[in-house]
Amino acid sequence: MSQEVRGVIARGKGAPVEMATIVVPDPGPGEAVVRVQACGVCHTDLHYREGGINDDFPFLLGHEAAGIVEQVGAGVTDVEPGDFVVLNWRAVCGTCRACRRGKPWYCFATHNATQKMTLTDGTELSPALGIGAFVEKTLVHAGQCTKVDPAARPAAVGLLGCGVMAGLGAAVNTGGVTRGDSVAVIGCGGVGDGAVAGAALAGATTIIAVDTDPRKLEWARGFGATHTVNARETDPVEAIRELTGGFGADVVIEAVGRPETWKQAFYARDLAGTVVLVGVPTPEMKVPDLPLIDVFGRGGALKSSWYGDCLPSRDFPMLTSLYLQGRLDLDAFVTEEIALDQVEDAFGKMHHGDVLRSVVIF
């Protein structure tokens, strides 16, 4: 039988979110119902509320989540009731051209649940990133459930579901940061600090954090930044070059998603270095005007990073293990724990840069 639970929806563009009763159907073939224990408040949820993703309102918000599998549908073998899981929005298909080439982190046909969760009047909801986890229980594709060590704290490891993984993976997976590298990260919110932490894990010896907010620069130091640059006071390109012997960084990660900061990243890298765009731009933004001879002459790579090019089945258990060993401080990303009815207030704090992550605890 279907279940009725409490959840947070965005009913219209720019309107404050509201609490609602959500109808969650029993899982069908390949689906699972998960009892959510914790869910982070991410900028992507705010983008949904503001109509920046699409206009398929009403949205069931929330996606950075961990919880317990309660039910599974026919044919599900990888998870079972009682499993502690982190939810992901890249349930790989295994059969598309990327998966067949042995690169499932680029899967072009990822899965979501087939059935829809609804309001009590039958209105179908669009779950954020195919998850919808600002809700006591959610329906997802079973491939969106990644088992991790149940000793981990849900509020911490749930953040692997989006922001922390996006940043950490941008450094390690997309940027290929390795021991001895110099790395610059432009934008030090949750994603940028994830990149800082990833660069530190990978053995980078120079990690330069760039932001305009002194509080965020101080947070970045806590995650492993060896130097900080306040871009309100100093030209970040010149500062990064000065800190890298005049050459520029081996890898520059742009975690803002704006043309001007992407251009800074381009000129702040060393010859043959790598620029990684992980900040999410809005549709009207354009690649900045660059002399083509500079693109040619500087060599290297210009990459974008979706979800940190992660493979959840590979990366989530490994990063959870590092967290439990004390080698990856996921707890430091959790600024505050809040109730489900405080999501709108959390959006305001996030907009003003007061938090890295507010996390809803159920």
Rank of each mutant, 00 (worst) to 15 (best):
D329F: 04
D354I: 08
D193S: 03
E260Q: 15
G52V: 08
A272K: 13
T110P: 01
G51M: 13
V33L: 00
F247D: 09
V252N: 05
T95N: 13
V72S: 09
T335I: 07
C107L: 03
D213P: 10
P27E: 00
G143F: 02
E238G: 06
G75V: 12
L328T: 07
A113W: 03
V210I: 06
L311R: 09
P154K: 02
A231M: 09
A204Y: 00
I22D: 00
A133D: 04
T234V: 09
F223S: 03
T77I: 05
V72E: 00
V185A: 05
D181H: 08
Q264I: 03
D181I: 06
D270W: 05
C145N: 06
R90N: 04
K103C: 05
G194Q: 03
Y267H: 11
G222T: 01
H352W: 12
V164G: 05
I361W: 11
G175P: 13
A91K: 05
V24D: 00
I22E: 00
T274K: 15
L159V: 05
G28S: 11
E344Q: 15
R298D: 09
F362M: 08
D26Q: 05
T335N: 07
P58G: 13
T178H: 10
V237S: 01
T205C: 07
G273T: 09
P291D: 14
F223K: 04
A66V: 04
D235L: 12
G30I: 08
D213K: 13
L328N: 07
V287P: 04
L330C: 03
G248A: 11
D345L: 14
A128C: 09
W89F: 14
E124A: 11
H227K: 15
V41F: 06
D211M: 04
A156V: 03
G353N: 08
K147Y: 06
T244G: 04
D83V: 10
E242T: 10
T44N: 08
A156F: 00
F84W: 00
R179N: 13
I338K: 01
P283R: 11
K116H: 14
G299N: 10
F108G: 13
L125S: 09
N54M: 07
A20C: 06
P81E: 12
L277S: 15
D121L: 15
R6N: 15
G12R: 13
G326C: 02
E18A: 15
G14M: 10
L328G: 07
R221D: 06
L356Y: 05
G257Q: 01
G299W: 08
I22S: 01
R314M: 12
M318A: 15
Q115F: 06
L292H: 13
A339D: 12
L340N: 10
A265W: 11
A171G: 15
A15W: 14
S305P: 13
G180I: 10
A98S: 08
E136F: 08
